[in-house]
Design a protein around this nucleic acid. Structure first.
Lengths: 207, 207
DNA sequence: GGTCCAAACGGACCGCAGTCCGGTTCTATT
DNA sequence: AATAGAACCGGACTGCGGTCCGTTTGGACC
C-alpha cells in the first residue's frame, strides 16, 4: 500500500539493484504474458525468468494481481497519452461531444483487447485507482465543456460504468451482443445525459 | 457448466443422497460465512463442517466461487421475490418512476450489504448470469411502462452498470462518497435517461 | 578505502483451491 | 429379492500464491 506509486522524492527513492530488478521483472512478465497468455503465467516462472527470487517479486508488486496491474499499466499509460495529446477526435482538436463519443469507443475497444489482463489484475483496489480517476476526470472535463450541469462526478461515473469489463463481459460473452450495438447504446446514453433536462444540480428534484 | 442450474426434468434429476448433501453443504457454508466472515471460510472447513468429503463439495459447486455464488443466490432470490411481489414502492403498486428509483436504491443497499460475498462469488461468469438478466428485464419493463423508446436492453444495462460492485467499491472505499450522494446521482441519471429527448431508437440524432 | 546499517535478496516453507481414483451406495431392471 | 452399473463419496495428492527469515548488497558517512 505504501510503495504502490513511485513518488519522486521519498526519503529513500529506490536502490539501484531494486530498480534494475523491477525492470527485469516487468520485462519478463510482459514477455511471458504475450507468449503464453495471462492464465499460464505463474509467479515462479516470472521470478526465474527474470533471474530473481520469488520474495523480491512479491516485495516489488505485492501480489500477482499487483504485477498484472503493473503490466497493464504500461499500455494504460500509452492510452492516456493518446487521450491527452493524441490526434482528434480522441485527442484535443475535435468538438467536445465528438471527443466524448470517441473516448467511449476507444475505452471500449481497449478494455476488450486487454480483457484477460484486466481480469488478472483484479478489482481496482490493487489496480491503480488512478486509471479510473483519470478517465473520470477526463469525462468530467468534457461534460463541463458541453455545458452540462449537475453532479459531474456522479454523471461521469455513470457514463463510465457501462464500459467496465464486468459489464462488457456479460454483454459480449454471455449475451453475445455485437460491439457495434454496445457502441450505439453508449452513444445513446451519452446523448440522453448530455442533452437531458438539467436538474439544476441540487438533490431536491421534483418527484 | 452443465449442472449449474437445477433443471427440473433431466435424465437424472438428482439422487436422494446428493440432494441431502447439497443442502448440508449450503447450510454449513451459510453458517460459516455469517460466523467467521467470507474470507475465513475455506473449502476444507465447509466440507468437514457439512460432514462431507472435499470431492463432493467440488462436484456439487464446481469451485469456491460457485459455492459462494450459491450462498449468495439464497438472498438474491428473496430479493427478487420482494421486487416481484413485495410491498410498494419496490414491489408492484407504485407508479413506474417511483418503482424504478426504489429499485435502484434497494439494489444499491443489497449489493453493499453482500459486498464481500459478491467479491468471493467472482465475476458473473460462474455467478448466475440469471441475476443480471432478472434485474435487466425488470428495468426494461419499467422503462417500457414509462414510455421510454429506444434500445431498452442497452438502456437498462446502462442504468444497472453504476450499481455494480466494481463501481460501488471504487466510490465507497476509494473515494469515500456517501451512499446518499450515490443514490442521488443515480436518481439524476434515471431522470435524464427517462426524461431526455427521445432519440426515436435510431442512432442518427442531432448533434 | 573502510565501516556500518538499512534495505533488498532469495529460496525454503505454508495454506488452500482444485484433481484423481478406488471404494461405496443408490436405483432401475429382471 | 438379487444383480448390474451408474452416480456418488471422500481423502490423499498436486500446484500455485503468498510469507518468513537468515544472508547479502548498496551507498552514505567517516
Amino acid at each position: 500500500m505504501t510503495t504502490l506509486l513511485p513518488l519522486a522524492d521519498e526519503p529513500t527513492p529506490e536502490r539501484a539493484d531494486a530498480a534494475r530488478n523491477r525492470q527485469a521483472i516487468l520485462a519478463a512478465a510482459l514477455r511471458l504474458v504475450e507468449t503464453r497468455g495471462v492464465a499460464c503465467v505463474t509467479m515462479d516462472t516470472v521470478a526465474s525468468e527474470a533471474g530473481v527470487g520469488k520474495g523480491t517479486l512479491f516485495r516489488r508488486f505485492e501480489s500477482r494481481e499487483g504485477l498484472m496491474a503493473a503490466v497493464l499499466n504500461e499500455s494504460e499509460t500509452a492510452w492516456q497519452a493518446s487521450v491527452i495529446s493524441g490526434p482528434p477526435p480522441l485527442g484535443p482538436g475535435a468538438p467536445p461531444l465528438e471527443r466524448l463519443l470517441a473516448f467511449g469507443h476507444s475505452r471500449l475497444r481497449t478494455n476488450l483487447t486487454h480483457a484477460d489482463l484486466i481480469a488478472a489484475a483484479g478489482r481496482p483496489g490493487a489496480r491503480s485507482a488512478a486509471a479510473v480517476s483519470f478517465a473520470n476526470m477526463h469525462v468530467r472535463y468534457l461534460l463541463g465543456e458541453l455545458g452540462v450541469t449537475g453532479d459531474l462526478l456522479m454523471l461521469a461515473t455513470a457514463l463510465l460504468a457501462p464500459l467496465e469489463m464486468v459489464v462488457l463481459e456479460q454483454q459480449v460473452n454471455r449475451e453475445h451482443i455485437s460491439i457495434e450495438r454496445i457502441e450505439a447504446g453508449w452513444d445513446d446514453l451519452v446523448r440522453r445525459v448530455v442533452g437531458g433536462s438539467p436538474t439544476g444540480g441540487d438533490g431536491a428534484a421534483r418527484r
